[in-house]
């Protein structure tokens, strides 16, 4: 039911764990629905995402989409990262079963939520 790519990201998740000194943290989803994604980003002065990490409570697809999303935004500017779509995550994973598409949406939302947090913190520190 899952592609090799999904199983690879599930078994060997990239960028798993919290990021020390993260200046943007987002959390989306809820345990009731069975998926929670937490995204950590460390953005430098040039607004480039230097480091990224995730923690996820959820199914295989939730873990794989989180992992892939971190790969897709690592080293990107926050503006570029904001253009990340769930479809791009699905494509990079070479497909997801239809019932799991919502996991990719959650991954997109997790990225946006972390960037929102980063911007909010920056605003507050001005």
């Amino acid at each position: 039911m899952y592609t090799e790519k999904v199983l690879d990201h599930f078994s060997n998740p990239r960028n798993m764990g919290e990021v020390e000194g993260a200046n943007g943290v987002g959390m989306v989803g809820n345990a009731k629905c069975g998926d929670i994604m937490q995204m950590f980003i460390k953005v430098n002065d040039d607004e480039i995402i230097e480091e990224v990490g995730f923690k996820t409570f959820g199914c295989g697809a939730a873990i794989a989409t989180s992992s892939m999303a971190t790969e897709l935004i690592k080293g990107k500017s926050i503006d570029e990262a904001l253009t990340l779509t769930n479809a791009a995550v699905v494509e990079a994973l070479e497909g997801l079963p239809p019932v799991k598409i919502h996991c990719s949406v959650l991954a997109e939302e997790a990225v946006k939520s972390a960037i929102d947090d980063y911007r909010k913190r920056k605003e507050e520190n001005k």
Binding site: F10, C33, G34, G58, C59, G60, A62, I63, K100
Partner: peptide, 20 residues
């Protein structure tokens, strides 16, 4: 489902009441 997937990747077949 994450548990089942790990079990399955290691040859163990089980099931779950998870929504997924």
């Amino acid at each position: 489902e994450g548990i089942l997937l790990h079990l399955d990747l290691n040859g163990v077949a089980a099931s779950s009441g998870s929504a997924c």
